[in-house]
């Protein structure tokens, strides 16, 4: 009993902080989401709207477009980062000249704040100033302009995310590969397994918990991407080609000051994120119990 009390006592500061900065704001956003509340509306104040905000969301083409775009982005970047990250991790399990330098340089983007990543890529890509448009034009005669061409902008955003987050995947994969027991691999090699079979039937199953955990973290990050894309594309452009859900919610809540609708939007996106993560978590737990 005494140790229980001491445990709760020691936990209480953390619990209080979590309650104040986590739970209370969540309840407030939940409450606001059931209201119409726009600071510049002709009707001042908050008005009970029931589930109207959520009903509107289902038919809101802008919201659905941004959500779909975000899911597409998430699938593309997470899949790409897992493949590239795994390959780099495999590379780093071997010895080669300059390996330590490569590892350091490769990890640097992880240490940079997302906003700064956006600024760096903007400086690289801004027409008239950045080196990328210049060399694309001079070497390949390609008019590379992410302020004007939606496809180029989306691809650039994906590449930026790959540059920023692949090192994280590489490090987790490397940790996973380093922790793999040698016996099953050696046994398979004795049995004549080739490289693909080693990967497919030995390493991949054993790496699954690591892969799922990494995916779990990266999906959550990709679904809430805002700052680096906002900085690179000047707010999600050109047009609405990079207006991911986080940017869309930002514009609804802040410049448009539509707090009620924006809160409902935030909660629905939170729900979708939780569902996706729960599915992955269930898969992870299932794998562990196996």
């Amino acid at each position: 009993m005494r140790s229980n009390r001491t445990g709760w006592l020691l936990l209480s500061p953390t619990l209080i902080i979590l309650f104040v900065v986590g739970f209370l704001p969540f309840i407030y956003v939940l409450w606001v989401g059931f209201h119409d509340w726009n600071v510049f509306s002709a009707r001042e104040g908050m008005f009970w709207a029931g589930i109207n905000n959520y009903r509107r969301l289902v038919f809101d083409n802008d919201f659905l477009y941004s959500l779909g775009l975000t899911l597409r982005f998430t699938i593309v970047v997470v899949a790409s980062e897992l493949v590239v990250g795994y390959l780099l991790a495999q590379l780093l399990t071997r010895d080669f000249p300059g390996k330590i330098l490569f590892r350091i340089v490769h990890t640097i983007p992880l240490m940079i704040a997302p906003l700064v990543v956006g600024a760096i890529w903007r400086l690289l890509t801004v027409p008239g100033l950045g080196p990328l448009p210049y060399y694309f034009d001079h070497w390949f005669n390609i008019d590379y302009n992410i302020g004007r061409y939606a496809d180029q902008a989306f691809i650039t955003v994906v590449l930026m995310d790959l540059w920023h987050w692949t090192p994280f995947v590489t490090l987790t994969m490397l940790a996973g590969l380093s922790a793999l027991p040698n016996e099953p691999i050696e046994a398979a090699m004795v049995d004549g397994a080739n490289r693909w079979q080693l990967f497919r039937y030995i390493k991949l199953p054993m790496l699954r918990p690591v892969i799922l955990t990494t995916m779990f973290i990266r999906i959550m990050d990709a679904l809430r991407v805002v700052d680096e894309v906002y900085m690179l594309t000047n707010g999600g452009g050109p047009g609405t080609s990079n207006r991911f859900i986080g940017i869309h919610i930002f514009r609804v809540v802040f410049p448009k000051t539509d707090y009620g609708y924006g809160s409902a939007m935030s909660l629905l996106v939170l729900y979708i994120t939780i569902v996706i993560c729960w599915m992955l978590f269930t898969a992870l737990m299932h794998q562990r119990s196996d």
């Binding site: 510049f40 004007r148 939606a150 050109p238 047009g239 448009k256």
Partner: peptide, 22 residues
Amino acid sequence: FPFHPQVREVVAPFIYSAIAGE
């Protein structure tokens, strides 16, 4: 206008799309 930012936020995306040639 007492509703300046609200209407701007609604109208502006169409101008952005026109600039992008969409």
